[in-house]
Design a protein around this nucleic acid. Sequence first.
RNA 1: GGUGUCUUGGCCGAGCGGUUAGGCAAUGGUUUGCAAAACCAUGUACAGCGGUUCAAAUCCGCUAGACACCUCCA
Length: 492
Amino acid sequence: MELYKENQLKVYNSLSKTKEEFKPLTDGYVGMYVCGPTVYSNAHLGNVRTFMFFDVVYRYLLHLGYKVRYVRNITDAGHLENDADEGEDRIAKKARLEEIEPMEVVQRYTVDFHDVLKNYNFLPPSIEPTATGHILEQIEMIKEIIEKGFGYEVNGSVYFDVLAYNKENHYGILSGRKVEDLIHNTRTLDGQSDKKNPQDFALWKKADERHIMRWPSPWSDGFPGWHLECSVMSTKYLGEQFDIHGGGMDLKFPHHECEIAQSKTCSGKNPVSYWMHTNMLLLNSQKMAKSTGNFILPNEILSGKNNILPKAFSASVVRFFNMQANYRSILDFSGDALEASEKGHTKLMEAVQLLANVKSGKTSTFDVLAWKKDCYAAMNDDFNTPILIAHLFDAVKVINLIKEDKASLTAEDLLLFTTVLYNFIFDVLGLMNENSQDNSEKINGVVALLIKLRKQARDNKDWALSDQIRDELIALGIQLKDGKDGTTFSLN
RNA sequence: GGUGUCUUGGCCGAGCGGUUAGGCAAUGGUUUGCAAAACCAUGUACAGCGGUUCAAAUCCGCUAGACACCUCCA
C-alpha cells in the first residue's frame, strides 16, 4: 500500500491562511508548480531557500508514493525592470550592459543555476519550461483574455483590466488586499502610462526600436508580460486546475495575484488548490535581494570565497541549516548559526556511520514504531522539518547508547530503524554524507597505518611518539578518536 | 500612509491553551597515560502592560521594537 494512504498530509494554504488536509484533485497524483528564477544573474541563497524547501516537498511526496509532476519554470524573457509597464526587460538590459546576446545571458545564468542545484543535491523537476519557449501559447492566452473582455490594447501593448475582473472576482484574494485600497495607496509613477488605471498589468508590451528581445504578435513586435508565463505554463503542463503552487512570499503580490486573475479569466476556475509560500532569508537582518546587493551565492559558501563567513561550508550543512527552521518563518543567515548547524550535522552523520556497524540484540529498549510515527507526523504537519530533525536526534541518542551497550534493538527493529532513518535523512531531506565520500582509499590506508604505529608506541608507553602522531595528524585536519574498541578518525 | 508577519533562555530555532522540542555553547560526570573526540546528566525562557480562563509563551486588547509587501524580487 502506498504510504500516502496512511499518512494524511496537512498543508498550510496561503489562500485560506489555515492548515488544510491535503487532497489531490486526482487520487495518487500531484501537480506542483513553483516559480523559478529569472536568469539575469546568479541565483543567491535566498532564492535557493525556496527551491530547497520545495525540493523537500517534492521528495516527501515522492516518498509517500505520489506520482508527482513538478514544474519549475525558468524566466528568460518578459520580466521587466522597475515598473512592469514602463520598464525594460531584465534580460535585455543585462545583455546591453555586458555587450552580449540576450540568450547568452540566459545561457550563462541557467548553467550557473543548474550547477548550484547539482551541488546542493536537488532532484530535477519533471519539467523545466522556459518563457521564450512558450511565446505562442502566451499570445493565445492574451487573445483569449481580450475576447473575454478583460484585456485591452493601447498603442501595441495589451493590459489586463483589473477593475473589470474585480467586479465578479476578488483581485487581491491571496494577498489580502482590496482594489479600492490599492487605488488609494499606489504611488504615482512618473512615466505616462497607457493603462486605464494603475492597477492594470501588462500582458504584452510593444518593444521600442532598440529592444532586442522581441517577437511578432497581433498587436506589435514585443514581448510578454512577466505574470503571463506562469499562468500559461502551469495550465499547459498541469491543467486548468492543479494541486500545489509554490513560491517566495514576495511573489504573493502582485505576481501570484495576477496569475490567479489571468487563469481564472480563461478557465472560469480557481487554478490552484494549495498556495504555499516560503518566507524570506535574511542577511544582516535584511532580506537577501539581488537589487540591494545584500546576498551570498550558494557556490561562494562551498568555496569559502566570500566576505560573510569565516570558512567554507558543505552543501549538506547548508541544507541542514535551512531545514532546522520552518519554511514559513523568517530565517537569519549568519556564520555563527551555520557553524552550530555544522556541528549538529556532523553529530548526525557520525551516528549514521556508526549505525552501519551496530549489532542487533535480544530485546529492544527503544520503541521504534512510535518513533517512526513521530517522524512521519512531523512531516505530515505541513512539512515540519525542524521537528523531524529533533526526532532524528532521538535516533542519534539511541545509536550512541547502543554503542555504549546501554541500549539494544532486535534485528527486526534495527532494520526498520535504519530504513526509516536513511529514508528521512537522505531521501526526504536530501542530506549528503560527504565525510565518507571524501575519504579516499589511500588516505584510509595511510591513516590506518599511522594508527597502528601509534598503538605500538602507546603499548610501549612511548607517549612522545604517540602524541606526535596524534598532534601532527590533527594539524592536517585528521582527528583521531580513541574509543573502547580501538581508534577511528574523521576528516575536518 | 495602507496591509500583513514577527519579538522564546548565552546563540540559532520549534511549540500556538495544561506534558523536556531540538541543535550549538555552558556546567558536572564517564572515558583516557595525559588529552582530544565521544557519551551521559543538568540549568537559565517566552518584548512590556492589562484582560479572558481552573490553567496562557500559546487566546484578546494596548504599548514598544523588528521585518516584509504595497514598485523588480524566491
